[in-house]
Design a protein around this nucleic acid. Structure first.
Lengths: 350, 350
DNA sequence: CGATATGATGCAAGCGCTTGCACATCGCGA
DNA sequence: TCGCGATGTGCAAGCGCTTGCATCATATCG
């Protein structure tokens, strides 16, 4: 390509130049009218806009990208698309991206840490910034050239990397308060995998609560953050002699309830169960699950906002905060969930 | 951008030219070594490859795209990312895309037909081809300029548009055969939404089966293809007096079972239930669900294959089959699922 | 009323790559 | 020995856009 067609433009898509011609201005003006609408007289812009409309012109992203050095794409790395939590996160991120006329590249690590690095690298080459929802590898992005692409974490706090986090302590406190209000005295906390930041945070919150609220909390686990993991918790749970349990997330709670029910333990009659996230299934299960709804949509949107700000600022996330103090965007957004009371919790037996 | 830096290249990413210099050849040669490896002497290519390695060079997609007119991206339009069926489809499509060094742009219509058109249009501008899994609008892509981008449908048959379909008749036949083998004489078929191609196909298959296999099949519905939709089918189902039911998909089957169980109807003791798709949840439910597993991974992979072939052929899907007969790629791929027997089906009561 | 600051527009270069064509080189048969 | 087709490389144009600078028209001031 790139060679001299004899000037037989058949019916190719219109270009900037076509618009310019029709509007009677130069390509530069059209370009400016499109980007920073200022610096073009408003009647000129009007003419340009009309021409664009008339030709049904749409800018060529590749050309723009080549010129600006930005692809107009954002990447998001998740551990599992099928997980409703991440599916929802993706949706909201996508909505945010669309609103900014950017596209979202989704990479699914399928829970594999090895894959994760690979994907991260290949993403890094194609996008202007990355939203990391995958909790896989250690605290620092390993390969040096990755440091060049702005990045924000979701539900993971790493020194100096901007993040959107859901307040894990609040989740625990809400759950505990709910159960306490129902008269439960002895509670269990079903821990998720140690490697998850959110899991550690919850544990910390639990520990901070032990004793001080006049009830006993026993920690079970860790268990895998899956349906199966939840099932596996049933036995130790029953052995612990508590009347209420707080699960690390809904899927585990569901697994737990399934096992409980099938072994003849009544929920909530004999055991109250609280989940976390409020996945759609939580409202469909029998019994429906009391849970702390995660502000997922907000999280996705915020992540995109934050990332965009970072990109705008041309800040490769790791730049030392020496120069231009104060000019950096917010580097951390904290969100809070809310309790959704359903049928899996009830008053403690007298 | 695009302006004369005083030649102070700081530490920008290496370009083709850098590689060329290091390898002692021209940029053209490097380019050729990278694309069609023939037409370059093998020792030359070796030198080029070494240089690439040394510089950790990676081609700039925008530049390539601008030059070739191809973005190297594929689009996939799904009605719901969170639906495990589509999540899996996306995964396999993504794997296929990756293998071809292409990226996958995912668009989620969130079940809204209006949104769908919008998304389709905006996708069309950014990708080389589209995989349509969303069953929304009528038989023909509406806007004319969409006809320019190659497209393949999944589980939807449209005149002249290439497609990957899962044999719906086979699903019905397997399910029926299974129940018949268990001694059931009167069966119900729980229909999905009329607008779905797959739903219509199943209905046709059911009708074709009525009578001929010596059993009675009553058709219920249509119901929405959701958990709730399944629940709603419980009442008419019990009224129909059958002993076995074939649900349009797993999610509906699960909804049905939940309602059945909660109203005291034993599954499978009093009612055998067969689903379709084999979503992960099917194996976790109580009781576990007998279902016809859909060859989803194969479908995703095939869709990418088919689409790539189409793109390669430069065939905008609608070109009349006049010239170059036989040179067109396969236009339809048919896949078959298989029965997974679990605990939701049992022998008919004597 | 001429000099000057200001804002709007055009010019043209260049982003990093692909590719048609021209050219050099080689081996071969005549 | 020369001519000739292959074969392998290089040249340079151009993909559609952005943007620094020059230019020009207009508003502002002395």
């Amino acid at each position: 390509m790139g060679q001299g067609h004899p000037p037989t433009r058949v019916s190719a898509r219109p270009t900037l130049a076509d618009v310019a011609t029709l509007a009677g201005v130069s390509a530069a003006t059209v370009s400016r009218a499109l980007s920073r609408g200022d610096s073009v007289r408003s009647d000129t812009r009007q003419r340009v806009l009309t021409a664009i409309e008339a030709l049904d012109y749409r800018p060529n992203r590749a050309a723009r990208g080549l010129s600006t050095g930005r692809s107009g794409a954002l990447g998001i790395l998740v551990p599992d698309i099928a997980n409703p939590f991440f599916a929802e996160l993706i949706r909201s991120a996508q909505a945010g991206a669309r609103a900014r006329e950017k596209v979202l590249l989704i990479a699914d690590t399928e829970q594999s840490p090895g894959e994760e690095l690979d994907l991260l690298e290949s993403l890094a080459g194609q996008v202007d910034g990355i939203i990391m929802c995958s909790p896989g590898f250690g605290p620092k992005p390993p390969r040096p050239h990755l440091a060049d692409v702005p990045m924000v974490f979701v539900n993971r706090r790493v020194d100096g990397v901007p993040a959107v986090v859901i307040d894990q302590g609040a989740i625990v406190r809400m759950s505990v308060a709910h159960l306490r209000d129902l008269g439960h005295k002895r509670l269990a906390f079903m821990a998720g995998p140690d490697r998850l930041w959110s899991s550690q945070q919850r544990l910390d919150a639990v520990r901070a609560l032990e004793g001080v609220v006049g009830l006993e909390i026993v920690v079970l686990g860790p268990f895998e953050a899956t349906f199966e993991g939840g099932s596996n918790a049933a036995e130790p749970l029953m052995a612990s002699g508590v009347t209420g349990v707080i699960a690390f997330n809904d899927v585990m709670a569901l697994g737990l309830m399934a096992r409980l029910t099938s072994t003849g333990v009544g929920v909530p009659a004999e055991m109250s169960v609280v989940g976390s996230d409020d996945v759609p299934l939580a409202g469909m299960w029998t019994p429906t699950l009391t849970t702390v709804a995660a502000p997922v949509r907000a999280a996705g949107g915020s992540a995109v906002d934050l990332l965009s700000a970072l990109i705008e600022a041309g800040t490769p996330a790791a730049r030392p905060a020496t120069h231009m103090p104060g000019s950096l965007p917010v580097r951390r957004i904290e969100l809070e969930g809310h309790l959704v009371v359903r049928a899996s919790t009830a008053e403690a037996r007298a």
